[in-house]
Design a protein around this nucleic acid. Sequence first.
DNA 1: TATCTAATTTGATATTAATCTAATTAATGT
DNA 2: ACATTAATTAGATTAATATCAAATTAGATA
Lengths: 190, 190
Amino acid sequence: MQLNKIVEFHKALGDLTRIRIIALLQHGPLHGQAIAGKLGLKAPTITHHISKLRDVGLIKERREKNTIYFSLNTKILESSASAILSVGKGTTNEMIVSQEERADIINNFFTKEGKLKSLPAQRKKKLVVLAHMIKALEFGKVYPEKEVNEYLTRFHDDYATLRRELIMCQFMYRENNEYELNPEELWWLR
Amino acid sequence: MQLNKIVEFHKALGDLTRIRIIALLQHGPLHGQAIAGKLGLKAPTITHHISKLRDVGLIKERREKNTIYFSLNTKILESSASAILSVGKGTTNEMIVSQEERADIINNFFTKEGKLKSLPAQRKKKLVVLAHMIKALEFGKVYPEKEVNEYLTRFHDDYATLRRELIMCQFMYRENNEYELNPEELWWLR
DNA sequence: TATCTAATTTGATATTAATCTAATTAATGT
DNA sequence: ACATTAATTAGATTAATATCAAATTAGATA
C-alpha cells in the first residue's frame, strides 16, 4: 500500500533532530562527526537518524578516505513532500493497485526462478512488472549502461527491450550513457 | 517557518490512521462516527487523531445539530507540506567571509581577554562578531533569559544590547522568554 | 425536566522510538 | 602487523503515543 510510504516519509521528518540534519544538509554534504558536533549529539545518534532518513530515500552518500559524506536527495524530498497533496484523490490512479493485485501480476508474469516470461501488453500490468524489476536498484546511484544490461539480464535475455521500456515509461533516465532511477516517477515504490 | 512547527506537522502526518483520515476528508466533510465506521475504529480514537490534525491547523469543522463535520484545510496542507523544501535555506551570501578575514575582525573587536570592545557598525563585521560570541552555545538547547544574560556578560556588561542584536539578526529566536539558536541562520558556523 | 446522541475526557495498557555507553566493524595509514 | 579514525551495532533506559473501555460533557429534542 502506498499510504504506508507516505506515513514512513512523514514519520522520518517528524523529529526535530532529523529536521535539523536536513537543514544542515541543504547547504551541502557533511560527514557524521561534523553533524554530531554541530547538533551536540553523539555519533551513534547520528547514525540512527541518518539511517531513518536513508530508509525513505532522502540520503545520498559518498565515501572519501575513512569518512562518509552524507547529502540530501532533494528530488526525493520534493516528490515525497508533495505526495500528501494527492492522497485520496486518484491522481496517480494508474498506479493505484492493491497489494494482492500486484502480487497476482508478478506471479503471472515471472517464473518461480524470477525470470520474466513476457512483457504485459496492458499498460498497468507493464508498469507493475517494470517496477518490480528495478526494486534492487538504488535511488541516486548512477549506473553505467553495461551494469544496467547485466542487471536486466537476470530477468530476461532481451535486456535491450527492457532498458528501452524503462526509459520510455520514465522509470529511469539516461544521460550520456549513464542511467539513474527517476525519483519523480517512483516515489510510490518500495 | 519555525523548525518545531515543521516537526509537529510531519509528526501529525506520520501515522497511518491520520493519513487515512486525510484521504477520506479529501472527498469532503465527514462526522466523527462516520470516520470511525469507515476505519473500523472507536470514536475516542478519532477524537484523538482529529485533535492532533487540528493542532497543526489541518482541520476545519462545522456543527450541524449534534454532529460535527470535519473537513480538510487544504491551504494549510499545501503550505505546510512545502515548508520542508526551504528549511535551512534562510541564509544570504552576506555571510560568506573567508577564514582570515574573520580572524582579523575578531582580533580587532575583542581584547586579548576576550571582551568585546565595541559592536561593529558595518553589518558584515557585526555578524562575524555575533557569530563568534555564540560559539559556545548549543544548537537545539533552550536557554532561559537569565542564563543568556549571564553568558553574554562574559563579553560585555551591556548584555541587553547584545541579546537584542542576536534576536534582530536572527541568530537566536525567543519564545515566551526562552532563547534558542536559530539553525537556519547559523549553518555556516563552525 | 428528562432523555437521546455525538463528542470528549480520563485512565490504563502496550508499542514505538530517541538517546546514550560500550563494543565492534571498516578502511587507512604507519 | 599494528594503530588510528570514522561509522555502525547491541543493549539499556527513558519518554511518547495509539488504542480502547468507562465516565463525562454538550447540544438538541421530546
